[in-house]
Design a protein around this nucleic acid. Structure first.
Lengths: 213, 213
DNA sequence: TGCGAACCGTACCGTACGGTACTGATTGGG
DNA sequence: CCCAATCAGTACCGTACGGTACGGTTCGCA
């Protein structure tokens, strides 16, 4: 296996070695926050030299960008082939989507990266924010949009503006939980309520946009 | 006017001089993010000495805590005396609440303080997060809870769990706008849509929890 | 008028970080 | 067997920050 072959394995233009380094960097970030994300610390944790870090990623910002891209490349949302959609299966799919959304938002790495991007939003012109939005949010948003569109095509949902409907769905599912978790609320206690929360949100959403009720 | 009399003017145990200093600190934070919030910078902007800063606020964390408390003390939510509530006035009050909520969340200082608290959530055990939650969120939450309770007493709303109803209202109003703004999305463009957004959210909420429809 | 407290401005100290340069070891190819 | 490239480890540099100490000044008060 040549170096050229090893390239572009992780969906980015990254060596597996570089991926391992980014993995360690993410771990540092999750454990200690932005303050723990120092070049020396990463080099120590990943058993590599600072010089290599700068050679591979340019500077600290490049490394952080690479971390976001690397993490996004690991979380691919599979579009559910939603054929033969009836009222019950739509509700089931929506509930699964809701649970997945809550699980993703409550994830260690997701929270840490969002905290990092939010903390830097003032100084870097929200470059990281846009990146996180584009590579994380958009994915799950498309999955929901496809689901809603399928529901409408099947005559199970009625809405004019798909974005508005998605906004309502998202708000009913997430409410202020995401912010509370970003602010440091212990996520362990909350996760138990995700199932019930998801069902309630989907029920409310179907009351608003379903044709059945 | 003695120094003792000047104390406790701003709702906290603060001299007006100290309040002015905190004002400048908030301005620095809004303009330049956490990185701009240095003790030397604050001293320069407020024309005071670093020694005074440490004398008044202990250390940098104490100063940040004081900033949060100071800002919270300026934003007192007036409980609307909601007697003689009918369907139309309830809807009007809810829309006003929704607009206020969006305006508050989109405010410069609110965004900056939330960014700061989120950025420090990993290292300080979410002390700032809890403070922000307690002194900012709780206020507006109580206002909403009172409104919802009044609506239920008047037979206009039907819900078992007030927290659940409030969660739905909050989610329908805010959706993912808060996170987007925290991540750096330009807030100027969004503010124009607040009115329509608030009306839509309240309409949806009344569809879910109103007794009239 | 004289005293003392508060305070501004600045200089200072230790530390820690981002980024660079150098050395020695390893590896793969000809 | 040697050469070139890569990389780990470390030492180093400039800078900037949090926090402290000190001289000079103002202001309330007796």
């Amino acid at each position: 296996m040549t170096a050229a072959m090893r390239e572009a394995n992780a969906g980015e233009g990254l060596t597996e070695r570089q991926g391992a380094v980014l993995e360690q960097a993410l771990r540092l970030l999750v454990d200690g926050g932005e303050k723990a994300l120092t070049t020396a610390g990463i080099a120590r944790a990943a058993n590599c030299s600072k010089e290599s870090l700068y050679k591979w990623f340019g500077d600290r910002d490049g490394l952080i960008s690479a971390m976001i891209g690397f993490q996004a490349s690991k979380v691919r949302t599979q579009d559910v082939a939603a054929r033969a959609l009836d009222a019950e299966s739509l509700e089931r799919h929506l509930i699964v989507f809701a649970k997945d959304l809550l699980e993703v938002l409550a994830g260690d790495v997701s929270l840490a990266l969002n905290r990092l991007a939010i903390g830097q939003a003032s100084r870097d012109g929200s470059k990281l924010g846009h990146m996180l939005q584009e590579r994380g949010r958009r994915q799950i948003g498309r999955r929901a949009a496809a689901l809603l569109e399928a529901g409408r095509k099947a005559g199970l949902l009625a809405f004019d503006d798909a974005d508005e409907a998605y906004g309502a769905l998202y708000g009913l599912i997430v409410s202020d939980w995401h912010l509370k978790m970003l602010l440091g609320e212990e996520a362990g206690e909350m996760k138990k309520g995700f199932g019930r929360k998801a069902e309630q949100a989907v029920s409310a959403f179907l009351s608003l946009y379903g044709t059945k009720r």
